[in-house]
Nucleic acid binder design. Structure first.
Lengths: 202, 202, 202, 202
DNA sequence: GATGAATGAGCTTTCATTCAT
DNA sequence: GATGAATGAAAGCTCATTCAT
C-alpha cells in the first residue's frame, strides 16, 4: 500500500470519528460506528490507532500541531509585541475556522472524557496561555492579571467558536465573531488595535 | 423518615457524585463508585434518582436554580443598566465560588456527555447570555456584538473558574479572578466600572 | 387483631397476587406491585407469606384443597363407578368455574416458574389423574390406556378453562364447555353418560 | 465464516437454551448459563439473538414452522375430511415426537412468561384449533362443539406429550400415547377411525 | 493488509427481602 | 402489627479489543 493510501484511510477514520464523537459524545461512540461511517471493518481501526483513546488523542494532537504551526508562522512576520499577540490570536482563529469540526469536538468532548485527556488538554492550554500571558506582561501588565487574561481569552474564544459551530454559521461568520472577541480583548487590556490587513470579512 | 434525613442523604449522594464525576468523567463513573463514596448500597441510589443521567441532570439543575435566584436578588437592588449587568456577573461569581465543585463538573463534564445534556445546558446558557446581551444592547451596543460579547463572557468566566478550581485556589482567589474578568469585560465594551462595595478581596 | 382481619388481608393479598400474576407473569410480578394493589406496605406481605414463592405455592394449595374437598363431597353421593368419575369431573368444573382466576394462574403460570413448582403441581396432577385412572380401570379399561386417558382429560379440561377465561366468557359458558368435554370423554371411552341432575346451563 | 458454521452455532445455542429453560424455567435461566452450556462467551449469544426474549421466540417459531410444514404435507395426501383431520393430528405427533425437547419447553414455559409470549402462542394455537374445528364442522358438528373439541384436543395432546417427556419415555411410547388420544377423540366425536398405515408402534 | 466473529469484563438497573421505627 | 427505606446479589446487555482467516 502506498503511503498516501494509508494516510487517506487514516484521514477518513479521523473524519468519521470526529463526526460521530460530535453527535454522540465520546462514551456514546462505538468503534463500530466509526468504522461503519468510514466504510471499513472494525479490525481495521486498530491498524491505525492502538485504541479508541489514542484515536481521540490523535484528534487533539492534530489540532494542536496545526495551531502551533500557524501561530509560529504568523508571529514570525509580526513586529511589536501587541502585533505578535494579535497575530497569535488570529492564527488560532484561522485554524479553528478551517478545522471547526475538529475544534468543536476537542473543546466540547475533550475535557470531560477523563483524567488523561484533561491532562493533555491542560498542557496544551497551558502552552498557549503562557504565550499570551508573556505578551501581556511584555506589554506592561501585572503577571497575575496577564495569566488571568490569557485564560479568559482562551475560554472566550472557545465558547464563541462552539456557539457559532452549533449554530451552523458559515466559516466567515465564525471568524468575524472571533475577531470581535480579539478586538474587545485588546480594548479591555488597553492595548492598541492592530491592522494586519487580514480581516477576511468586513 | 424525617424530611431532613432524606435531604441529607440526597445531598451526600450528590456530593459523592460530583466528586467522582470530577475525577473520572461521566462515563468513567459507575453508580457503584458513587454509592461507595456516599456510604450506601447501590440500590439506594435509585431511591433518590431514577437513573445516572437524572442524577447529573439534578446537579445541573441545582446549580442553575442557585444562579437564577442569586441573579434575581442582586439585580433587584441595582439601579442603572450597567449596574444590573455588573451585579448579574457578580451573582454568578458568588454562586460559582460557593459551589465551585458543582460548577466545575457542570462546566467540564456536562457538554461532552451527550446530546440531551448539551441541549439542557444550551438552554441554560442561552437564558443567561440573553440576559447579558439585553443589558449590552440597552447600553447602546449593536445586537450581534452584544450576543457575541455575552457568549464570550460566559466562556471567559467558565474557563477562569475551572482554571482556579483545578489549581485548588481558595474561594477568595477564585472570586478575584472572576472580578478581574468582569472589570476587563466592562473596559472592553466601554462601560463605566461600578462600585457596589461588594468586592470581597482587595 | 381479630382472626378475621388477618384472613381478610391474606385474602386481599392473594387476590391482588392472582391479578398481577395473571397479567404480568410470575417473574414480571414484583412484590411491590402486589402490595400496592392490595393497599398495604411491602413489608406487610412478609407477615403473611415467607416469600414470593410461598405466596404462589399458597395459591396452588388453595385451589388444590378446594378441588379435593369438592371431589370428595361429590363422590360421596355417587353410586356406580362411572357416576363417581362423572361426579369427580363435575366437582373440578365447579371449583374451576368458581375460582377461575385462581385456576387460570395456576394452570398458565405454574408449570413454567421452576422445578419446585413443577414438582408440586405434578404431585397434584398425579393425585387427580390416578383417581380418574382408577375409575377407568374399574370400568374395564387397560391400565395404560386409563392412565393415558386421565392425563388427556386433565389437559383437555385445563385448556378449555383457560380458553374460556381468556375469552372473558361468563361462568356458565365455562361450565358448559367443561361439561361438553366430559360428555365427549365418556363417549370416547365407551362409558355410559350419567344424568346427575346437576347441569347448570342447558 | 461458512454459512454452515453459523447455523451450527445457532443450533448449539438453541439446544443449550432449550435445555436450561426446561430445567430452570424462563426467568430462572440466565444468558450466561446458556452460553456456558453452549461453550461460548456471553457476548456471542447476542450475535445470534437480539435478546433473551427473541431467543425464546425463535424457539417457538422453529417449532411452529415445522408443525405447519408437516401438517401441510400430511393433509395433501389425505382424501376425506376425517382423513385430513386424522392426518393433521398425526403430523403434530410426528413433529412433537421428533422435537420433544423443543415442544416441552414451548408448552410448559411459553404461556407463563408474559403477555407478548402468550399472544404469540395464542395466535399459533388459534391457527391450529381453527383448522381442526373446520374439519369437525365439515364432519357435521355444531360450530361451538367443534371449537370446544379442537381446544380440548390441543390441551389433551400437549398434556400427554409433556407427561411422557417428563417420564423420559422413548419417542415411540410418546407417539403411541398421542395416537391413543387421537383414537379416543375420534370415538368421542363419532368419527370413523382412519387407517393410514402410519402407526409406527403396535 | 483487511476483516468481523468472538470474547468477557463491566456497566446500569431491578427487586426480594430485612429491620429500625 | 405495619411500614417502606435500605440493601446487594444478580441479571441483561454493550463494546473495546483480539486474532484466525
Amino acid at each position: 500500500m502506498r503511503q498516501g493510501e494509508r494516510e487517506d484511510r487514516e484521514q477518513a477514520l479521523i473524519e468519521a470519528a470526529v463526526s460521530v464523537f460530535r453527535t454522540q459524545g465520546y462514551a456514546g461512540t462505538s468503534v463500530r460506528a466509526i468504522t461503519e461511517l468510514a466504510g471499513c471493518g472494525t479490525g481495521t481501526f486498530y491498524l491505525y490507532f492502538p485504541s479508541k483513546d489514542d484515536c481521540f488523542m490523535a484528534i487533539i494532537d492534530r489540532l494542536y500541531q496545526r495551531v502551533v504551526a500557524q501561530v509560529a508562522t504568523r508571529r514570525a512576520t509580526a513586529g511589536t509585541t501587541p502585533a505578535k499577540l494579535w497575530a497569535s490570536i488570529g492564527a488560532v482563529l484561522e485554524v479553528f475556522s478551517a478545522e471547526h469540526a475538529l475544534a468543536h469536538v476537542v473543546l466540547v468532548q475533550g475535557p470531560g472524557i477523563g483524567p488523561s485527556f484533561r491532562e493533555r488538554l491542560d498542557r496544551i492550554r497551558q502552552t498557549f496561555s503562557e504565550l499570551i500571558a508573556e505578551d501581556l506582561v511584555e506589554s506592561g501588565l501585572d503577571p497575575w492579571v496577564a495569566a488571568c487574561g490569557a485564560r479568559a481569552l482562551l475560554g472566550a474564544l472557545g465558547e464563541v467558536l462552539v456557539w457559532q459551530v452549533d449554530a451552523d454559521a458559515p466559516g466567515g461568520r465564525l471568524t468575524r465573531a472571533g475577531e470581535e472577541v480579539r478586538r474587545r480583548f485588546f480594548m479591555g487590556y488597553g492595548l492598541p488595535p492592530v491592522d494586519d490587513g487580514r480581516e477576511m470579512m468586513t
